[in-house]
Design a protein around this nucleic acid. Structure first.
Lengths: 150, 150
DNA sequence: CGCAATAACGCAACATTGTTGCAGGAGCAA
DNA sequence: TTGCTCCTGCAACAATGTTGCGTTATTGCG
C-alpha cells in the first residue's frame, strides 16, 4: 500500500507518522511544481490541519531532507519534494512564471561554476529563471482565460 | 558638485529631486552590496525620513531603472544601484553570505542558457550563490569577533 | 520673486507571511 | 493497555511590505 510506504518513509527519519505529515508528503509528491504554504493550506483545506502545523511540517520536511525550500521573488517560501535520486541539491534551478506565479523545478541544470571574488567560498548555487510557462505562453497568443495567481 | 549631479539624474527620470531620493540614491551608490529596506532605514536614521517613504523611494528607483531589486533567502527585498554600464540586467548574479547575511552583486557571470521544458519562455535569469564571504571565512578560522546580521 | 499645480511625504491602519509559547492530544514502544 | 514524549491547536506576536488620505514642498511659469 502506498500509504504505508509513506508512513515508513516518515518513520525512517525518526519522526512519527502523523496525518498532517502524511498529507503534506503525499501532496508535495503529487505536485508538479513547488508549492507555497498557502498552496498547501488551500489544498488541505477541510482536513482540519492547523496553519501553524503546516509551517512546522514543511520545516520538518526540509530538515529531514524530504523536501527542498526555495524563496521566490514574491518573498514566499516554496517547497518541493526532494528527489531521492538527487540527494545533494547544492545546485538547484527553478522557473517562475511571471503570469501565473507558479514555480517549477528544473532538474537538469548545468552546474554553473560561479566566478566569485577572492576569499569567497561557495556552498550552494541557486538558479532562478523567470518568464512564461507553456500554459501562459499559449494564453499570450489567445488572450481568453486568465489563470493569474493560481 | 556631486549633489547637483544626483539631483539632475533624478530629474532626468521626470521625477522631483527630494531629500529622500537624494539620500537613498547616494547611499545605494556608495554601498558595496545590496541593501535591504532595513539597512537603508538604519543608515538614514536621524534624517526624519519616513519608513513608508523609503519603501516608495526604493520602488521608484527600481521603476526608474536606477536600482535593481532582488529577493534574498530570508524573504526580504534588497536593492543595489543600477550600473549605467549594464543597462539590461536580464542576467544578474548575487552572493549571499550564510554567516553575516550580506548580499553582494556579482557582475561578471556567465549568462547561463538554461534548458527549459518545451513551451517555456525565458525572460530573465537570476543566479544566487550562497556561502561565506571573505570576511566571514577569515573569522571561521579565527572565531573571535562575530559579525552576524550586520 | 511669488504663485499655483501636483508630485511626494508623513502618519496611521492594514495585509501577508512566518514564528513562539504553552497546554492538551496522539503515536509508538513496552 | 499504559506511559513517555512528540506533535498539534490555539492565540499571540514579529517582520516585512502596502494602502488611504490629508498635508507639505518641488518645480515650472507669469
Amino acid at each position: 500500500m502506498s500509504s504505508s510506504t509513506h508512513a515508513d518513509r516518515i518513520r525512517a527519519t525518526g519522526a512519527r507518522a502523523t496525518p498532517a505529515r502524511l498529507a503534506v508528503l503525499r501532496l508535495l509528491e503529487s505536485a508538479d511544481r513547488a508549492l507555497s504554504h498557502h498552496d498547501v493550506e488551500t489544498a488541505l483545506d477541510g482536513t482540519g490541519i492547523d496553519r501553524v502545523t503546516l509551517y512546522r511540517v514543511l520545516d520538518w520536511m526540509v530538515e529531514a531532507g524530504l523536501a527542498h525550500r526555495v524563496t521566490d521573488a514574491q518573498r514566499v517560501f516554496r517547497f518541493s519534494i526532494a528527489n531521492a535520486a538527487s540527494p545533494t541539491h547544492s545546485a538547484h534551478a527553478h522557473f517562475r512564471c511571471d503570469a501565473c506565479g507558479k514555480v517549477f523545478c528544473l532538474d537538469d541544470i548545468p552546474a554553473t561554476p560561479p566566478a566569485l571574488p577572492r576569499g569567497f567560498a561557495s556552498r550552494a548555487v541557486e538558479l532562478c529563471v523567470t518568464g512564461h510557462c507553456d500554459r501562459c505562453k499559449q494564453e499570450d497568443s489567445a488572450p481568453a482565460a486568465q489563470t493569474n495567481k493560481d
